[in-house]
């Protein structure tokens, strides 16, 4: 079933939180440079799917293979390292450290990887320029608008040149115009670095930025390319 050349493949994922079944045999695959939208009603398990794919949550059963490596065989530290170096993350909100300035926030993933402060902040500034928020470098997240903050977050997710970018409702807290701008910049940047993007959203107009769509309902996934 797995298309050849996939970067990240998940098969038969099952995950329950207590009595709630979040994933019930979900499948997923993505190629390098591909943008895949994960849609579905709230509570359908789409965020859980993203968390499993990113190695934040371990599924109860099923397999996830990243770049030919089975994730279940990695320990927590290895998965953390993977997230630090190979993955990038953008969330709906609450992800910027309020005490750090914007440029420090963007530099954070690099610094977690052990890059020196100067180098990290230089790279961070480069990405902030690409996302048109370099004038915010000295500001703290509390002092910038939602759209700006989200662009800072995108810059941060890209600063490590990740191979997979996980975006969970990246425009959820933004109006249409800001949301579009963020999506434009995000997909453009991802395409330019050939990063795969897993885009969880419930907005069709956001999903329209994708190459392919997966719908999750009641813990089951459905690849919309292969309907009927």
């Amino acid at each position: 079933m797995t298309p050849a050349g996939s970067l990240l493949v998940a098969d038969e994922l099952r995950k329950t939180y207590g009595p709630t079944v979040a994933l019930d045999g979900a499948e997923f695959s993505i190629h390098p440079g591909e943008v895949v939208a994960v849609m579905g009603p709230s509570g359908s398990g789409k965020s859980t799917l993203l968390h499993c794919l990113a190695g934040i949550v371990t599924p109860d059963s099923g397999s996830i293979t990243y770049n030919g490596r089975e994730m279940a065989t990695m320990n927590d530290a290895e998965r953390s390292a993977l997230r630090r170096s190979e993955f990038g993350f953008v969330f709906q909100f609450g992800q910027l450290v309020p005490e750090l300035t914007c440029v420090e926030n963007v530099a954070l993933p690099l610094r977690l990887n052990g890059t020196s402060r100067k180098e990290a902040e230089k790279a961070a500034l480069g990405w902030m320029e690409r996302l048109e928020v370099d004038d915010l470098r000295k500001k703290r997240p509390g002092e910038v608008s939602g759209g700006q903050g989200q662009r800072v977050a995108v810059a941060r997710s890209l600063v490590t040149n990740p191979r997979v970018l996980f975006a969970d409702e990246p425009t959820g807290a933004l109006d249409s115009l800001n949301g579009e701008r963020v999506m434009d910049l995000l997909t453009e940047a991802a395409r330019s670095t050939n990063a795969a993007v897993v885009l969880v959203t419930h907005e069709a107009r956001v999903a329209a930025y994708s190459d392919r769509e997966i719908v999750v309902r009641d813990g089951k996934s459905r690849d919309m390319e292969r309907v009927v």
């Binding site: 530290a77 953390s80 390292a81 630090r84 993350f89 969330f91 992800q95 450290v97 993933p109 977690l112």
Partner: peptide, 13 residues
Amino acid sequence: RRLLSALVAFGTR
């Protein structure tokens, strides 16, 4: 809490 989770998500030790 949310911030901590986000930090963990992107691989903070």
